[in-house]
């Protein structure tokens, strides 16, 4: 993943500032929609670390999204909100631990095997929660109270307030981007990019590539849990569909559509895809058909994703028309 070109960085800063203004004038529905999109952006960025950082294409990333949401729903007390200070670390740690167990097995493989194995493990978790009575089976579970944010005994933020939740999601999204950028700039990040480009050479240089890939898989799982946490907080309900491979496919689409060469790609993909669906959904019941065609067209016409619209250095006349 390269650094972002300047134009894209400026656009991103402007976009975040514009986003921060949304709750000031937008109606309820729009605030909720953008909170959801930012949750999906975190989800997509965590997968982006795997796909364009390490070069591991996971088709089971929704497993960690679902886990994050379920861990919060299952550990929240029945008659009060869980405190964010312990609930969020718990959600991230439990999910990261599961990611470590699955990752230990799947990062031994690569290519098609990795794609299919992650898909299969995602399905395994789906069925586990689908059939498990303690988790509410196929109906899932309700979260009776949203997590509370208290400091020194008094309430700091109320997540029941829509604009507050919106800003919390915004902060989480920007923080996730910051963490991923830090990881990629650190020696660890250079090493995983090296593994993507040429794993045998990294091995020859003495790197334990298995450990690096596993670590990246665990970090991606842990960050994804934050998205699951936000989802459960916003909707106060979880169900097995969160684990489904459609969800994994959707988030992978966001990452790829956004573009793999840019760190902002996954977030752009999340905004692009959800807003596209939202628009088409208003027009027709068969919006998935439009999504399918949209995906196929982008794959065939824009091999480097939507972000390439902003960073193509010298577009030819025909390509400029597409933009």
């Amino acid at each position: 993943m390269d650094r972002n070109p300047r134009l894209l960085t400026i656009l991103a800063v402007v976009a975040v500032l514009a986003l921060a203004l949304v709750p000031l004038f937008a109606e309820r529905y729009t605030i909720q929609l953008f909170t959801k999109i930012m949750t999906m952006a975190i989800f997509a960025m965590s997968l982006g670390l795997l796909v364009s950082g390490v070069g591991l294409v996971s088709l089971g990333h929704a497993a960690f999204f679902g886990l994050g949401a379920y861990v919060l729903a299952l550990t929240s007390p029945a008659n009060e909100g869980a405190s964010l200070w312990w609930a969020l670390p718990l959600v991230v740690l439990v999910t990261a631990a599961v990611a470590a167990a699955i990752g230990a097995l799947v990062v031994r493989t690569s290519g098609i095997y990795f794609i299919m194995l992650t898909l299969a493990f995602g399905q395994m978790l789906f069925y586990l929660f689908h059939d498990a009575k303690f988790a509410g089976g196929s109906d899932g579970r309700y979260l009776n109270f949203r997590p509370t944010v208290e400091l020194l005994g008094s309430e700091l933020l109320s997540l029941n307030d829509r604009p507050t939740l919106f800003y919390v999601a915004l902060v989480f999204m920007v923080a996730t981007y910051g963490i991923i950028s830090m990881i990629l700039n650190a020696p660890f990040g250079r090493a995983i990019v090296g593994i993507r480009v040429n794993e045998p050479r990294m091995k020859a240089l003495g790197y334990n590539t298995y450990a690096y890939k596993l670590a990246a898989f665990v970090i991606a799982g842990g960050l994804c849990a934050v998205a699951g946490f936000l989802y459960a907080t916003q909707y106060r309900a979880v169900n097995p569909a969160l684990f489904s491979w459609r969800e994994s496919g959707l988030v992978l689409m966001m990452v790829i559509l956004g573009g793999l060469r840019s760190r902002l790609g996954p977030a752009i993909g999340a905004f692009g895809l959800v807003l596209f669906e939202e628009t088409v959904q208003a027009l027709t019941d068969h919006w998935l058909l439009a999504t399918g065609v949209f995906v196929i067209v982008v794959v065939l016409l824009l091999p480097d994703g939507l972000a390439s619209l902003f960073q193509r250095k010298q577009p030819t006349a025909a390509e400029a028309d597409d933009g």
Partner: peptide, 21 residues
């Protein structure tokens, strides 16, 4: 593989919606 996954995923959506229609 990434492009293949994406394009054939798009195909699934198209086929599924055609079936629903």
């Amino acid at each position: 593989h990434l492009t293949q996954v994406l394009l054939t995923y798009g195909l699934i959506l198209v086929f599924n919606e055609a079936q629903r229609l």
